[in-house]
């Protein structure tokens, strides 16, 4: 395996638990924590999707600039959409956007390589990005956050920016064949604390951390 060019902000918190490593999108990430990964995912599993490439932009000209790059934007503040190629586009407040590629996607790289126009300000994104899945996922959020995640509707495509265990997060709910799951983003420097705390609570609920191998398609879409 060649040397990674990117490192997950959660690496230090995961290093001692990992049993197998991988490098999606050039980022050193955990492929497996142990034989219990799949069982964790069924109960309540937390995965690290920080490897997915993302870029941010804000300003009154941001929506038009993204459109010129072929990136669709949600109409409503605090909402999200998924483009036909799987790219997630989140509208954070009125004029800020977070774009996250699916593996192999090129929108984030194109945004970073294109000079911003008038009224467009790049927002560096070094997020820790998590997914919470499993039948106790909602219970995990209830124990760690005052915001009611049950109001996050995948159909309404709502974005919530709130505080979870004292860390500012952005959250959405997604539907999958395996049920509802939540995607979270937070500043990478708080990532290890958020990860460790959520894993601790998840273990109390019979779940825990899940590597990318067990996440499978959840890590890809």
């Amino acid at each position: 395996m060649s040397a990674p060019v990117r490192v997950s902000p959660l690496l230090d918190a995961q290093r001692s638990q990992a049993s197998k490593w991988t490098q999606p999108e050039g980022m050193q990430s955990v492929a497996a924590f142990g034989p219990g990964d799949a069982a964790h995912l069924h109960q309540v599993g937390i995965g690290d999707l920080s490897f997915r490439r993302r870029a941010g932009v804000k300003g009154t000209g941001a929506a038009a600039w993204l459109k010129s790059l072929g990136i669709e934007t949600p109409e409503r503040p605090n909402s999200w959409l998924r483009m036909p190629d799987g790219t997630l586009v989140l509208r954070l407040g009125m004029t800020e956007f977070l774009v996250e590629d699916v593996p192999g996607g090129g929108h984030a790289a194109r945004m970073q390589a294109t000079a911003p126009s008038h009224g467009v300000y790049p927002v560096p994104r070094f997020d820790a990005s998590l997914v919470i899945a499993g039948r106790e996922a909602l219970e995990l959020t209830r124990q760690t956050c005052a915001f009611d995640f049950a109001t996050l509707s995948p159909q309404a495509q709502t974005v919530a920016m709130t505080s979870m265990v004292g860390v500012g997060i952005t959250a959405i709910a997604l539907n999958g064949s395996d049920g509802l799951r939540y995607r979270l983003w937070c500043d990478g420097t708080y990532g290890s604390y958020l990860w460790s705390t959520l894993v601790e609570v998840a273990r109390d609920l019979g779940g825990g951390e899940v590597g990318l191998d067990a996440l499978g398609r959840i890590a890809q879409v």
Binding site: G93, A146, F147, T162
Partner: peptide
């Protein structure tokens, strides 16, 4: 006005 009613700690 944008994010709705939340705990004062936010």
């Amino acid at each position: 006005p944008i994010n709705g009613t939340r705990p004062i700690s936010e």
